[in-house]
Design a protein around this nucleic acid. Structure first.
Length: 485
RNA sequence: GGCGCGUUCGUCUAGUGGCUUAGGACGUCGCCCUCUCAAGGCGAAGAUCACGGGUUCGAAUCCCGUACGCGCUACCA
């Protein structure tokens, strides 16, 4: 890295939510900034009034924050380069467009949408290699332009792309990329509503905000020649570019809502840990080169480099995300897990029941290695929270035998006699029953598990007994005997 | 159609000319552990490195071509 402090930006357009692809872009920008002691800036690209969504900016910022990606400059955090919302910078763009027009690098265009449409159709009919604006308005006399302007005729301003020019772009992840200016259109820079297009606003702001590295999605690579031309025309030094590979659906198309969840908030609401999401998304297109896959944000910050970013798109594979979620969950401090469990309970059918911290502690101990999500404490071990009245058929068939009722009855009698039984007491009682009746422990254990949980799997059966308590154990044994025999 | 980018196990990836009988992870399957289910440990299956040419003593790695996929081709970003 050079001596200058890098300044990078995440520049989403506020469409309503933070896309996981956007999160990945934001994350790489963030990591790059942190890695090289730079600044991570948030800029809102809201130049399309038609797509304006109420409250989108707030949601975006909230999602970013939830992921732990705090920006150092941006809306509400002035760093001397504001405003950071493009709709508040209109005069700046106008000013720069004027400069371009002055130097003949841009020109007024009064063509109507109808003419443009007709032009496109004609070009298509002629099977021209590429549809482009025909520079019709470039030929307009100063006189005509002046008159048109004065009469209030609607206009746009277009970039004047010179023919026969070879445009070279250096990209940190893709290497050298070349374009022929013949294939770049005279892009509209300023729309008839006075708003700039992405291309103009992006370049002007990146320069004015001192952006050193433009790290963005691959979908922008094709329009980079336009941007580079603008830097050159303004006489500005180009930033370094890094075009990130796309995130894909399982069928390899660009990740879309059609095929699953794409919003960060969707994953949050489904119970994914931010640590897992960030960890997962970081690995979609980047590795440190070693075998490490479990990362916290801070560690990523120490190891990240753009040079190690992959070129090929990556399929968003939820199964691996699930695994990472379980890993992160298990590594969390227990009191934090208990807090999350409390919140989960508060919004569940058990909201009205009070669970002691000690009880929750035991539940977490018993279930932690059996769950991938906090909500699974509730769904994978319902029997720890409430009574039930159905028994897993397979397990009944396999574990409930002729003598089960009798053995459980005897066990219940023993348990009955114990005050405040501990885990060991249940175990001891069971061993006694097995011994006295000359059967293996399994003959008692499995029916007990079935009686007490209704299913064949789960934590140690004596842990279950301890958690649900003597009264429930006895009740459930009685009930099982009644129903199963 | 044009232009650009990409292509290593199902998926994420390691690999930058010999260390590779292509390594790891998720998932799948099996074994061990064990009262069960998990977790953990061990192991297996799974990639003719898209295909075809070249360069080289030697190529997943370099070059060329083809195919396929994706992106862009808007007064959307």
């Amino acid at each position: 890295m050079s001596d200058v402090q890098p300044r990078v930006r995440f520049a989403p357009s506020p469409t309503g939510y933070l896309h996981v692809g956007g999160l990945r872009t934001a994350l790489y920008n963030y990591l790059f900034a942190k890695r090289y002691n730079g600044k991570f800036i948030l800029r809102i690209e809201d130049t399309d009034r038609n797509r304006y969504v109420e409250g989108a900016v707030e949601k975006l910022i909230e999602s970013l924050k939830w992921c732990g990606l705090d920006y150092e400059e941006g809306p509400g955090k002035d760093g001397g380069y504001g405003p950071y919302i493009q709709s508040e910078r209109l005069s700046i763009y106008k000013e720069h467009v004027d400069k371009l027009i002055e130097n003949k690098h841009a020109y007024y265009c009064f063509c109507t949408p109808e003419r443009l449409e007709a032009l496109r159709e004609e070009q298509q009919k002629l099977k021209l290699p590429q549809a482009k604006y025909d520079k019709h308005c470039l030929e307009l006399s100063e006189e005509t332009i002046k008159n048109n302007l004065e009469s209030g005729m609607p206009y746009v301003v277009r970039l004047n792309v010179p023919p026969g020019l070879r445009i070279y772009i250096k990209d940190i992840v893709r290497g050298d990329v070349e374009f022929d200016s013949e294939v770049v259109d005279d892009q509209v820079l300023l729309k008839s509503d006075g708003y700039p297009t992405y291309h103009l606003a992006n370049v002007v702001d990146d320069y004015l905000m001192g952006i050193t590295h433009v790290i963005r999605g691959e979908e922008w690579l094709s329009s980079t020649p336009k941007h580079v031309l603008l830097y050159d025309y303004f006489g500005w030094r180009r930033p370094q570019f890094a075009h990130l590979p796309l995130l894909l659906n399982p069928d390899k198309s660009k990740l879309s809502k059609r095929q699953g969840d794409v919003a960060v908030e969707d994953y949050r609401d489904k119970g994914y840990l931010k640590e897992a999401l960030v960890n997962f998304v970081a690995l979609l297109g980047w590795t440190a080169g070693d075998d490490k896959e479990f990362y916290y944000l801070e560690e990523l910050t120490e190891k990240f480099s753009l040079e190690r970013v992959n070129k090929a798109g990556a399929v968003f594979n939820v199964e691996k995300l699930n695994w990472l979620n379980a890993e992160h969950l298990r590594k969390k401090p227990k009191d934090e897990i208990i807090d999350m469990l409390k919140k989960e309970i508060a919004s569940s059918e058990y909201a009205s029941i009070t669970f002691t911290g000690e009880l929750l502690n035991q539940i977490v101990d018993a279930m932690l290695e059996r769950v991938s999500f906090v909500k699974e404490f509730l769904t994978k071990a319902e029997y720890l929270f409430k009574d039930f009245d159905s028994y897993d058929e397979e397990t009944v068939k396999k574990r409930w035998k002729e003598d089960s009722s009798l053995l459980l009855k005897k066990l219940a009698d023993k348990i009955e006699a114990i005050d405040n039984p501990l885990k060991e007491d249940y175990e001891h009682a069971l061993h006694q029953v097995a011994e006295e009746n000359n059967v293996g422990n399994g003959k008692v254990i499995h029916p007990l598990r079935l009686a007490v949980s209704g299913v064949g799997g789960g934590p140690g059966v004596f842990d279950i007994c301890k958690i649900i308590g003597k009264k429930n154990v006895l009740n459930r044994i009685t009930k099982a005997i009644e129903i199963l025999k």
